[in-house]
């Protein structure tokens, strides 16, 4: 498909420009896409590297998709995950997923996304359960990534979902039902539509000088007599 990549790149950028006049991407000045060493290239042109065997790929191919693609065999209940979670996760994320110190909070926060202090957790923010399975398997527990068996990942994933009131304690999570779990914020995302601001490069008398107030300044430096008095309210971090 990409034998004539140059043509396609041109096509792709043309489409982009057509879609949105204000957003046109510039691949860049120094980038010579039609460089001297790049004749029309067919697959295997350089002939470097070695074929990846199915076994080699299987060892590294760990990614899971929302449709469940990539999930290995297995099934376990939230109940099965309770002890595992306590042993391997709670020290940082808390027994209820409330987060210890500054470690991430994993549960709670439902309905806070429009509040001034939104709490983005698995239950309140994550759109897909597959992301949880994938992430626990690829990166947790923090100090021993990829040390959990597939079975344990099913169990702990189910337990974190349970901590978020998304499944029952007895719920059995399987390869086949994971994709059908509906996360509360599943429809909360939309694809990048920026630019979403439009400023003008005004040069003179662009605003009323008398209206300018300092709205915030790091506390420690509000010591000297300010030119303009601070109108900041305590941000309450």
């Amino acid at each position: 498909m990409f034998r004539l990549a140059k043509a396609l790149v041109v096509l792709a950028s043309a489409t982009l420009v057509a879609c949105s006049v204000s957003v046109n991407y510039d691949s860049g000045d120094q980038l010579d896409l039609s460089g001297p060493d790049q004749p029309e290239q067919v697959a295997g042109y350089y002939g470097v590297g070695k074929a990846a065997s199915p076994e080699e790929i299987a060892g590294w191919d760990i990614d899971i998709r929302p449709d469940g693609l990539g999930l290995p065999d297995g099934s376990a209940s939230a109940e099965d995950g309770e002890m595992l979670y306590e042993d391997q996760c709670a020290v940082c994320h808390g027994s209820f997923g409330e987060g210890v110190d500054r470690y991430p909070v994993l549960a709670g926060g439902e309905g806070t996304l429009t509040e001034s202090r939104p709490e983005k957790t698995v239950g309140s923010y994550w759109p897909y359960a597959s992301t949880l399975w994938d992430y626990i398997h690829r990166a947790m527990p923090f100090a021993a990534p990829q040390s959990l068996s597939d079975q344990d990942v099913y169990a702990i994933t189910a337990y974190v979902l349970y901590l978020n009131d998304l499944v029952d304690y007895k719920f059995v999570l399987t390869r086949d039902n994971l994709a059908s779990i509906e996360m509360p914020n599943r429809d909360g995302f939309f694809v990048d539509d920026r630019p979403d601001t439009s400023n003008e490069a005004c040069m003179n008398n662009c605003k009323d000088a008398a209206s300018i107030r300092i709205t915030s300044e790091p506390e420690l430096v509000v010591d000297v007599s300010p030119v303009v008095k601070s109108t900041a309210t305590a941000p309450g971090y």
């Binding site: 990614d63 998709r65 983005k120 923010y125 897909y128 597959s130 992301t131 994938d134 939309f190 920026r194």
Partner: peptide, 21 residues
């Protein structure tokens, strides 16, 4: 793939509760 770094993180929450991905 909708992995953690493109859902939980690196999405931009707006005032109305929706997020740009």
């Amino acid at each position: 793939w909708y992995h953690r770094e493109e859902t939980a993180k690196y999405t931009d929450l707006l005032a109305d509760g929706r997020a740009r991905k």
